[in-house]
């Protein structure tokens, strides 16, 4: 079972709550996804209003909320928002997003590391959203991040695992769980991420903007399951060329 910072999660699919056509559709889709961990953009919720749309429609007994700092331009902003969220009962867990470029929403590695260092010291359970940079992943792990969340491709692009070779290095090296986040456009992308050994994936846009978000959520759940099972079953290694079934490797010299 997936375990992050000592907490167990039955599902390896994390769901986002943005871009849905309504809260009703969002709830049904998240239900169909089987996700337990659900991310919520702090900028979208009214932290002082308990009847706020997103926070009130999702059952907090059933779902584990992972607030995110999307929109933060630098470490200071992210830290400020995190503290505020915790102060009004948002909990210690945080998906750290520092995205100074509002266009690509690509994460700033320098500011993310800075913010992670501060927040870990303050007792937060920090899951940073990062580019698929193996060294950065290790730096964050050393700083005390509970998991790392490298992107498959830029957010909202549905392009799949453009960063696959970097992801493979991160998965091989990291001791903390690796959650592939952003850019997963199809269940096959999610399956591939799981096949290469990711611990979990986070999906939002592909589900939210599908013609049938509920059905798509269920499809992603299956993709994640299939990919995970394949990983556990032990996949054959990749080969770029066909290999002869009667190999002639030239070992005749051996006595």
């Amino acid at each position: 079972m997936l375990s992050i910072a000592g907490r167990k999660f039955a599902s390896r699919l994390f769901a986002g709550t943005g871009k849905f056509s309504s809260s009703a559709v969002m709830i049904k889709a998240i239900e169909a996804s089987g996700a337990e961990m659900v991310t919520v953009a702090l900028r979208r919720v009214d932290l002082n209003d308990p009847s706020d749309d997103i926070m009130s429609v999702l059952d907090r007994e059933k779902y584990f909320f992972l607030p995110n700092t999307s929109g933060a331009r630098d470490a200071d902003e992210a830290v400020r928002l995190a503290r505020l969220a915790r102060a009004v009962g948002g909990g210690d867990w945080l998906k750290l997003e520092v995205t100074p470029d509002p266009r690509t929403l690509l994460p700033d590695p320098v500011e993310t590391l800075k913010a992670a260092e501060v927040l870990v010291k303050e007792g937060f359970t920090v899951l940073p959203y990062i580019n698929a940079d193996p060294v950065l992943a290790l730096r964050l792990q050393d700083a005390g991040a509970a998991a790392v969340m490298p992107l498959g491709s830029p957010i909202g692009t549905n392009q799949g695992l453009l960063t696959i070779h970097q992801l493979e290095i991160i998965i091989e090296q990291a001791r903390v769980p690796v959650v592939v986040d952003a850019g997963l456009g199809a269940p096959s992308h999610a399956a591939l991420a799981m096949e290469i050994g990711a611990d979990a994936v986070l999906v939002n846009t592909a589900i939210a903007v599908a013609q049938d978000p509920v059905k798509m959520a269920a499809a992603f759940a299956k993709g994640v399951l299939a990919g995970r099972e394949a990983f556990e079953a032990g996949l054959g290694s990749h080969r770029t060329e066909a290999s002869a079934s009667s190999p002639e490797t030239g070992l005749d010299f051996l006595r």
């Binding site: 900028r43 902003e77 928002l81």
Partner: peptide, 10 residues
């Protein structure tokens, strides 16, 4: 609501 004043206020 799709923003938060917390971002920019020190």
């Amino acid at each position: 609501k799709d923003w938060d004043m917390t971002f920019q206020l020190h």
